Amino acid sequence: MDTQSERHIINQIKEGDSDAFKLMVERHKDASLSLAISILKDQDLAEDVLQDVFITVFQKIETFNFKSKFATWLYRIVVNTSYNQLKKIKKGVDIEEITIVPEKLITHEEMLKEENQKRFINLALLRMNADEALTLRLFYLSEMSIKEISKITGFKTSKIKVCLHRGRNNLDFQLRQLLGNELNDLL
Rank of each mutant, 00 (worst) to 15 (best):
Arg137Ala: 08
Ile95Asp: 04
Thr3Pro: 01
Ser68Asp: 10
Ile160Leu: 01
Ser142Met: 10
Leu171Val: 10
Leu183Tyr: 07
Asp131Val: 08
Lys14Ala: 02
Val79Pro: 00
Glu143Pro: 00
Leu45Trp: 09
Trp73Leu: 07
Phe70Gln: 06
Asn122Val: 02
Glu132Gly: 01
Glu6Lys: 06
Lys151Val: 08
Gln51Met: 11
Thr72Asp: 07
Glu143Ile: 01
Leu40Glu: 10
Leu112Lys: 15
Leu33Tyr: 02
Asp48Gln: 13
Glu62Leu: 06
Pro102Ile: 09
Ser142Tyr: 07
Lys161Val: 10
Phe120Glu: 02
Leu35Cys: 15
Lys22Phe: 03
Ala133Val: 05
Phe54Val: 10
Val53Cys: 06
Asp48Asn: 15
Asp19Gly: 10
Ala71Leu: 05
Met144His: 03
Ala36Glu: 07
Ser32Cys: 13
Leu138Gly: 01
Leu50Ala: 02
Asn169Met: 11
Asn116Gln: 12
Glu110Arg: 10
His28Ser: 11
Ser5Leu: 11
Phe21Val: 14
Ile100Leu: 14
Gln174Cys: 02
Gln117Ala: 04
Lys60Thr: 06
Leu171Cys: 04
Ser158Lys: 08
Thr72Ala: 06
Arg137His: 12
Tyr75Thr: 08
Glu47Asp: 12
Asp48Cys: 09
Glu47Leu: 09
Phe139Val: 02
Phe139Tyr: 15
Val101Tyr: 07
Glu132Pro: 01
Lys147Arg: 07
Phe64Asn: 07
Lys91Asn: 11
Lys90Trp: 00
Ile106Asn: 06
Arg137Gly: 02
Glu115Arg: 11
Ser150Glu: 14
Asp42Gln: 12
Glu182Gln: 13
Lys60Ile: 00
Ser34His: 15
Val162Lys: 13
Ile121Leu: 04
Leu123Asn: 10
Ile95Thr: 13
Lys118Trp: 00
Val53Phe: 00
Gly180Asn: 08
Phe66Asp: 05
Leu186His: 03
Leu171His: 02
Lys67Cys: 08
Phe120Thr: 03
Val101Lys: 14
Gln85Cys: 07
Asn11Arg: 12
Ser68Pro: 01
Glu115Ile: 10
Asp48Phe: 04
Ser150Lys: 11
Gln12His: 05
Ile39Glu: 08
Lys69His: 12
Glu182Asn: 13
Arg7Ser: 10
Lys14Glu: 07
Asp131Tyr: 14
Ala20Met: 09
Asp42Phe: 04
Leu74Arg: 07
Ile37Pro: 00
Ile55His: 04
Ile121Pro: 02
Ile146Thr: 12
